[in-house]
Each structure stands twice: as C-alpha cells, then as structure tokens.
Write a protein that binds this DNA or RNA. Structure first.
Lengths: 341, 341
DNA sequence: TTGTAGGCGTTATCAC
DNA sequence: GTGATAACGCCTACAA
C-alpha cells in the first residue's frame, strides 16, 4: 500500500471524523445547510472551524463537473470603461463562493473564442462577456455552456442568454443631436480603434446629423489605432488642417475628447465657441477639465452589478423578469458644448 | 454498476486507447515529451488532434496538487498603473499553459490575506502580488507556498521570493530635487489615497526638499480619499487658498497632477510660471496636455514582463541572476516645470 | 435526514 | 522507455 499524501491539509473526511458523521453529510452541510439537521450542522461547523478546513476546489470541480469559477472576458485591460464594470463584478462576486477568472481578448475575436474554450473547459458557474459581437462559434459554445451567460456593455435583440448594457446607437444619436441643437454647423467625428460598439455610436451619430441636415462624410475621421489622449489631439489637428470650417466634434470616447480639447488649446481654438467637443462614457475627469467636457454618461459599475445579480438569480433557479436590461445613458452637458448659439 | 459520465468530452484514456498506449504515457507525452519515444509521441499527438482532446485542468490539479493557475493580486482595478502591468502579465502568461487568476485587494491588507489563502488553496504555479507591504501572516503564507512569488511595483531588501519594481523613495526624491533645481521656492505635495508606496514617495520628496532647504510641512497635503482628477483640482485649490505663496506641487500620481493643472487654469494661475507641477508614473496623457506635464516615468509594462520571465525561469529550475530587479524610473521634464528660472 | 459505494480524469509510485 | 495500480478529495446516484 503506497501512500501519496496530498497537500497535507484537512479533507472533508477529517471533518466528518471529527464531527462523527459521514463525508456526504459534511458536503451537504457546507453546500446546502438546509439539508442537514441543526444538530449535525452545528457539530460540523465546529469541526470545520477547529480543523481550519477549506474545501478543495479542484476536487469539487472534478467530482461535480462544475467549478465555482465565473469567467469574464473583456477586450482591454487598460480601458477605464471596462475597469469600472470589472470592479463591480469583483465587488459583488467575491462575496459569494465564486472565483473570478478574467481573460483579455485584445479586441480579437479569435482570442475571445480561445478564451471561451479555456473557460468552458473548467466548467464555470457562469460567464460574462463584453459586447454582443461574438463569432458564430463563440455564440454556439456559450449557448451550450450549460451555465448563465451575460453579455455586458451593449444590448441587442438576440442575447446568447442575458444582456445588460445600453444602446450605443442611441448614445451616438444623442451626441449628434446635441451638437446639432447647439447650433454647430460642421460637425465631425473622431474615432479611434473603432470596435463594433464604436461603429454603432457612429451610426447613431450619422443618423442624428442626417436628420438635422448636417451630415458631411468628409468630417468623419476614424482609425484602427488604439484611442489615447495624444491621438485625440493629433486627429483633431489633422481634421482642422483639412477642414478649417470644422466647428464641433463627437469623439468616440473620453480620452479622445480630452485630447481634442488639448489639441484645440494648442492651436488657439477656443472651446466651446469655436469648437464644440463631446465625448463618450463620462469618465471622472470630464467634469474636472477646464473647460469641463460634455459627455454621454454610462453607468459601467451598475452594469457589472446587474450582471452579477442576474447570474445569481439564474443560479438560484429564479426566472428573470427580463433577459435584456437596458441601463441607458445620460447626456451630461458641460462647458465644452455650452456656447451661446 | 452505475456509470456517471462526465461532461462527455474525451479523456486521456480515450487518447491512450486510440494511440494504443497507456494513459500514463499520454500524460508524460503531453507534459514532458522528452520522456517518451518519438514513435509513441507521434501516435499520441495524432490521437490528441483527432479527438480534439483538451486536458482536464481540475483533474490534473487534484492528482498533482499543482494547478496551472498564476494568482495575481492588485490593490485596484481602476488604477491605470496596475492595468499596464497586468496587461504585460496577461500577454506573456497566456502564451504558456498558464491561467491567470486576478484578485482585487482594494488596498486592504486583510483582503489581500484572504485572497492569498484562496489562491494558495488552488495550488498555484506562481503568485504575483503588488508591493512589499504584506502583513506578516501574508508573507508567511507566501513563503510556504512552494511556488515562485514575485512582488511587483516596488523594491526593498527583504523579498518574499523575488521582486521587480523601482524605488518609490528615489522617485519622490527625484521629483523634489527637480522642483528645487528649477528654482521653485514654496513647494507643496498633493497626495491622495496614500498607500505605502505613496508614503515612500513622500519621504523621498521630503528628503530632497530638506537637502535643498525648501521643506515646509505646511505645504504637504494628503488624504485617504482615492485619487482622481477632480480631487487634484480641489486639493490644489484648497492649498492655494491657504498658502497663496505656493509655487509648485508634486502630485503623488498623474491623475492628481492633471487635476492640479485644471485647478490652476480655473484659478487663472499660469503653469509653469506661477505654478510648477510634476506628477508620477507618466501616463500617456501627460505628454498630450496643454501645457504638457512633467512626470516620473515608470515602465509598468516592463515590470509585468520581467515578473513573468522570472517566474518561468524559476519554474524551469534556473537559478536567477538576481532576486531583486530594479527597473528604475526616468524624469520626463515637460512644460509644466519649464519656466525660466 | 443520513449513509454507502464508486467514479470524476489525472498523476505518483512502483515494477518491468 | 513503458505500464498497472492506487491515490488525489469530493460529489452523484442510490438505498435506507
């Protein structure tokens, strides 16, 4: 008889011995206390405390083909927008028995697919993915995952399972409408990276400008380069050089908007009188800048929070009131678009 | 005889059958191909491909008491500083067989300790933790973890195992020295959150000012509130109100510095002539602002990259040249401190 | 409500 | 270099 000896830490059998019950009773007492009598439960809890017993997640996962892992996939680790949602997910998930596993897809669909495979291979309790632009394969994988799946940050008609976010099309439209209403005439668009959500913002923006009779495709400037403050400054410089009559821009995110502000300041263009600027997401800095910057406020933290709520509800067997939750957005008007008409 | 049937996906036994070998040979071929003859290895690899076999990480972890998980603990998910390091860790680790597991300690030592326990409970391949201010218990846990441990973002004399970072004291000192050299007379400090690393920056800063005969404790302003651009603007406003003779500030990070710039602009104080501003970390925006902002550049991406290299080396049994790696910093002088003396 | 038996998929141990 | 066998720690299925 060869002994192998594990990590040496107490097992469920040790607890069972100490409490004078069988292992399965301990298992039940830990996972669903209501299935065990008060009497035994107390004894078991005592034994757990005394032995400092911590369940072995791998053994549990192996036996049940379900882990306590919640897989989360975001396209960027450095984009503040996802950071807020992630923070909410962590805040709410680390309370329970769950363990977050985070993947970075780098805005590459194939990477996302690979990550989904990796995570599903671990039998996750749930999955959270950003956006609703997964590949067909990815959708299929998630549909067959046998666990709650929430797509966050965006909404659409055809959820894999559940969705929490807001309409980027409508957000872009609100931005466009605002600039038109403010009386700006030659309204441009500055777009970096241009992931699917940015594209939808641009579509909404175009729609608003067309309705307002202000649409000029020559003022739309996009690039696949990652967004940054520097890039915002550079792009608005280029656009102003090409079209000196430009008098407002919608930037596809706040970094770009802040950069556009700096670009104007360098060029001696006054904001908002000579140039209106509006961003997207309303990061904290937008209210602090000088002049302060108008933006479309989105509640990323609430999105993460809601996603976790929906997951927990589904795991508890509750039937959700809604599979698709639109948390909306709110235009925050500030100095950068507050010129006298 | 009751069959339980797992997730239904191919197991190592299926591969063994198809290749006409035993399971252990498959296991060896996958983990250390050199231990298996070319002939069998080829057959096994074929079988793996045909069956689309993916190892079951939980089973492996259970049997070997080692998982492929690398635990990473950071104090904040929204602080860009950690985002860059995280990105590097993900970029380099997702190449190998590893799986990153990220924890958020929220700058709370007890939370960090809890996370360490959780991660160690999974028998991680390695651990990466931010800073070198762990509690004694946490240090002990990590010391006995039986896996490589890297402390990142800071350096010190007494590593748990390995360290990659830079000296915050020296960084703060360089900032202080710079302001003194530039001829600023009443030099203040704006510090938010004030985690241990910020404290060390402040100590270095004090040291430089004392050496230069410019130290005035009344100009040191700190708070436990999280740093933000708004807070930077607010604090510099308060400090200027109290001490109208203030003519320069070192901010404990770049968000605060940007906020300080906005605060000055709102108050009609010209930067750098009436007020010098220097930040810390040199985020991308610092070069783009108007005026551009001086900062202490740190290479967070390199820190993450190096940490992963050290881990891989230690796992490969290599003896590291250094246990403590100082990646240094670099003062980036820009317009915000470039006044004529 | 509680217990018994055996399997989850892999790897360590020992033998050839 | 390769294989048989017994762990690893927990949970599902079934029975009482």
């Amino acid at each position: 008889m060869r002994k192998r000896k594990g990590a040496g830490r107490p097992t469920i059998a040790d607890v069972a011995d100490k409490a004078g019950v069988s292992t399965i009773t301990v298992s039940r007492a830990l996972r669903d206390p209501s299935k065990v009598s008060d009497h035994l439960r107390r004894k078991i809890n005592n034994a757990v405390r005394k032995l400092n017993y911590v369940p072995h997640s791998h053994a549990s996962a192996l036996a049940s083909t379900r882990s306590n892992i919640v897989g989360v996939i975001v396209p960027s680790l450095t984009n503040n927008v996802f950071a807020d949602t992630l923070r909410a997910i962590y805040d709410d998930l680390e309370q329970g028995p769950f363990q977050v596993q985070l993947g970075n897809s780098r805005y590459v669909a194939a990477d996302e697919e690979r990550l989904i495979r990796t995570f599903l291979g671990q039998g996750p309790s749930a999955m959270i993915v950003a956006g609703n632009d997964q590949t067909d394969t990815a959708r299929e994988l998630l549909q067959n995952a046998g666990c709650p799946v929430v797509q966050v940050m965006d909404i659409g008609d055809d959820p894999i399972d559940m969705m929490v976010g807001f309409s980027h099309f409508e957000g872009g439209r609100a931005a466009g409408r605002h600039l038109v209403q403010k009386g700006y005439k030659r309204i441009g668009f500055l777009g970096a990276r241009m992931d699917p959500r940015s594209h939808r913002r641009l579509e909404g923006f175009k729609d608003a400008l067309q309705s307002g009779g202000r649409y000029d495709p020559d003022l739309i400037m996009t690039t696949t380069i990652s967004s940054s403050v520097s890039l915002g400054a550079e792009l608005i410089g280029q656009l102003m050089a090409r079209r000196s009559d430009l008098d407002a821009v919608f930037c596809n995110n706040d970094d770009m908007a802040l950069g556009a502000l700096f670009g104007c300041q360098k060029a001696g263009i006054s904001v908002p009188d000579q140039m209106g600027i509006i961003g997207f997401n309303d990061l904290e800095m937008m209210a602090a800048s000088h002049p302060s910057l108008t933006s479309i406020r989105t509640d990323r933290y609430a999105i993460g929070k809601r996603a976790v709520e929906m997951i927990k509800a589904e795991l508890d067997g509750e039937t959700p009131e809604q599979k698709i939750v639109d948390l909306g957005f709110e235009l925050q008007q500030r100095e950068s678009t507050s010129r006298a008409k």
